[in-house]
């Protein structure tokens, strides 16, 4: 049996150029439209108290203690203003 007969004559992509282009277009459209920007004036929900990482001081203390004891990690939580982007 001649092995040459079992191999395709051309690579799959060159025999169906349309599929490759379509895939590229799909990826580009996906990348281009998959993200959106929440404008600074639209951050009402993000500025809600429930979005704050430090809304429960007791819970925060407990978590800090746990991270410190287990992972020797502490600090780095000094971000203020919740998610509203104010100041």
């Amino acid at each position: 049996m001649n092995l040459k007969n079992l191999l395709p004559l051309q690579p799959a992509c060159s025999s169906r150029p349309g599929g490759m282009v379509l895939a590229a277009v799909a990826v580009i459209i996906g990348l281009g439209t998959g993200c959106t920007t929440v404008e600074p004036w639209q951050r009402r929900t993000l500025s809600d108290a429930t979005m704050r990482g430090d809304r429960d001081p007791a819970g925060l203390l407990l978590a800090e203690h746990m991270w410190f004891s287990r992972e020797a990690a502490a600090g780095g939580r000094g971000v203020g203003g919740g998610g509203c982007g104010c100041n």
């Binding site: 004559l9 060159s14 150029p17 490759m20 282009v21 590229a24 277009v25 580009i28 459209i29």
Partner: peptide
């Protein structure tokens, strides 16, 4: 296995062209 240069370069050229347009749009 003989392939003419056109068989490979055509989809590649189309791919590059589409990618370039897409990247320009994203930029």
């Amino acid at each position: 296995m003989n392939m003419s240069p056109l068989e490979i370069s055509l989809p590649r050229r189309q791919f590059l062209r589409t990618s370039a347009v897409g990247m320009a749009l994203m930029a």
